[in-house]
Design a protein around this nucleic acid. Structure first.
Length: 568
RNA sequence: CGGGGAGUGGCGCAGUCCGGCAGCGCGCUACGUUCGGGACGUAGAGGCCCCGGGUUCAAAUCCCGGCUCCCCGACCA
């Protein structure tokens, strides 16, 4: 492909709206343009890369037994009402009305439609297992799209759905998908960490996310080198350092003027925050719930939401707290009744805590559970922290940020039961089909790959997903000898199967080199008068700083060698 | 949804406080010179100053209303 024919314009100045590396570089390298918040046009360079990623995904999904199909993005809203996900997605679901005033939605995911397809095809255990997948544009009206392709409102996703006869079959499929995912991300040049993930309120049991470590990522994960434990903070369990122990002392009321925070309370009393208790008020689907937790630990609202099985969870506001008889700044589990009382497991250990007293300017000291207050239930609703112990008791957790590029999920029978998809087993009994779902954000993989592979000059594409593996540069392109040699080399490379971006522009050497560094194609070849005199061309890998010279007759094999190094 | 910032040739920005010819750099076009790390000269093209209303002799600039985009947070099976 000749650069003079390609829809490509690189940008010298940093785009003002972009801060994240991949966003900045994709704009500067002329890979995409913005159309609306979280909505982009993929220009030829980006699309080439996306197609390569898709190809890798297809190969691995097919190898894992998947069959590709394509479902509509435009769907009747009825499908979503049936499963209740109309409400579950809420404002994130793009809604529209057709000319006959019927409600429609732009699909953010495809469980409803694919389950209906499976329902129409699966009659017997002989039809199982079945894995269907598609690569398709998804729509999610995110509250805050950000960082270019990292979180868009329209994006490309590979979504796969498996149908099995029972949990054992699902286990096998699930493992097969995990293996396929590892292959996919490895081939895309993305180191990923597989972490336990939140499986949400809907049914699911096992769920794993594939996280690519990156500071720009939105997910926080907790890892333990010693034990190999890895989990998203949304789900992570941990062993918190113990609170001070001691013989229970009599509970007394203390004056704590102006103290309204845990930090303030600990300072005022001269005790560690781990020797305090806090009480947090929530509204869960309209029900009020009080969560008591050790002062130095934060409530994990996702764990709490899952525990309560509610769809809407938020902190109670001042009026709601007042209505329940609570005093902000001194809320207390002591003497409280009439609301659902939940305690985090963190309160089960330790003694003589300081806690609220439900009176302005006062707190209790030497509060001991269960002597001084009662709860209705205890559970793990704590946010795991860096420095906490790994839940398996081996080693300490470290925190890291990352980008979620894939998610595998055991759905169970929620959709098949809701939509009535059953099969006839060997004994002639009707049973619900068991589902799994498996997603990869295709356009996010591209952005993540650039997050992971760039330097101050530009992108450093992993060879398998580079728009072109080879960047051929003709220096002094108006020189007839250079042009002739470069044209011939271009032909040779293309016919040898190497897609080549041929910079035949009349630009100066500096411009061409800088653009080459910006685009980050894996192998750069320079044809110049200087090289021609010696009968060589220069070959340089983007990942390396030094170039090598190859005889003009042996360029193709030198390119093969250079690319082979990149495959590692 | 809460907080902050910004909309001016394709891109990056100045001008707005204090109303008076719409500017600069890059890019683009043509010609010439140059030619291994963002070359130089000369001559050009390119504008709904986000939109609507108002004030004024006069509005990019002041006033009112709206829209869009970015960042932080909340949110995000």
């Amino acid at each position: 492909m000749r650069a003079t024919q390609l829809l490509l314009r690189t940008i010298r100045d940093e785009p003002s709206e972009a801060e994240t590396a991949s966003h900045r570089l994709m704009l500067r390298a002329g890979m995409m343009t913005q159309v609306a918040a979280g909505v982009y046009s993929y220009l030829p360079l980006a699309l080439r890369s996306i197609r390569k990623i898709e190809r890798i995904i297809r190969e691995e999904m097919n190898a894992a037994g998947g069959q590709e199909l394509l479902m509509p993005a435009l769907q009747p809203i009825e499908a979503w009402r049936q499963t209740g996900r109309d409400a579950a997605f809420g404002a994130n679901l793009f809604r529209l009305t057709d000319r006959r005033d019927r409600g429609m939605a732009l699909a953010p995911t495809h469980e409803e439609v694919v389950t209906a397809i499976a329902g129409a095809h699966v009659e017997s255990y002989r039809d199982l297992p079945l894995t269907l997948y598609q690569i398709q544009t998804k729509f999610r009206d995110e509250p805050r799209p950000r960082a270019g392709l990292l979180r868009g409102r329209e994006f490309s996703m590979k979504d796969a759905y498996s149908f099995d006869a029972g949990p054992e079959g699902l286990d096998a499929t699930y493992q097969r998908m995990r293996t396929a995912y590892r292959n996919i991300f490895r081939r895309c040049g993305l180191p990923t960490i597989e972490v336990e993930a939140d499986s949400g309120a809907i049914g699911g049991k096992d769920s794993h996310e594939f996280i690519m470590p990156a500071q720009s990522g939105e997910d926080v994960i907790l890892l333990c080198e010693e034990s190999g434990y890895a989990a998203n903070v949304e789900r992570a369990a941990s062993i918190i350092p113990p609170a001070p122990e001691g013989d229970p002392l009599p509970m007394t009321l203390a004056d704590t003027p102006g103290v309204t925070t845990i930090a303030g309370l600990a300072d005022f009393l001269g005790v560690p925050q781990s020797q305090t208790l806090k009480a947090v008020f929530y509204q869960a689907d309209g029900e009020t719930a009080l969560v008591t937790i050790r002062g130095d630990v934060e409530v994990n609202e996702i764990k709490l939401k899952n525990y309560l099985g509610c769809s809407d969870l938020r902190l109670a506001n001042a009026e709601e707290a007042a209505a329940a008889g609570l005093t902000p700044g001194s809320t207390s589990p002591v003497g409280l009744d009439g609301v659902r009382r939940i305690a985090d497991n963190s309160i089960l250990q330790g003694a003589n805590f300081a806690a609220g007293a439900n009176q302005p300017g006062k707190h209790y000291v030497n509060v001991n559970y269960p002597r001084d207050f009662q709860v209705d239930e205890t559970a793990d609703v704590a946010t795991a922290r860096e420095g906490d112990g790994s839940p398996d008791g081996k080693g300490v957790l470290k925190a890291a940020r990352g980008i979620e590029v894939g998610h595998v999920f055991k759905l169970g029978t929620f959709f098949t039961e809701t939509l009535g998809v059953q099969y006839l087993d060997e004994h002639g009994e009707r049973r619900p089909v068991v589902m799994g779902c498996y997603g990869i954000g295709v356009t996010r993989v591209l952005a993540a790959a650039i997050e992971q592979n760039h330097d101050e000059k530009g992108v450093i594409f992993p060879a398998p997903i580079a728009p072109f593996p080879v960047h051929l540069i003709a220096l002094n392109a108006s020189d007839p000898q250079v042009r002739e040699a470069a044209d011939a080399l271009h032909e040779e490379l293309e016919s040898a199967g190497y897609e080549t971006l041929y910079d035949d522009r009349g630009e100066s050497a500096g411009v061409k080199f800088n653009d080459a560094d910006l685009l980050g194609l894996p192998v750069r070849i320079v044809v110049s008068p200087r090289n021609l005199k010696q009968g060589v061309v220069e070959i340089k890998r983007r990942r390396e700083s030094d170039a090598t010279l190859a005889p003009a007759g042996a360029v193709t094999s030198a390119v093969a060698d250079a690319l082979a190094k990149d495959e590692l």
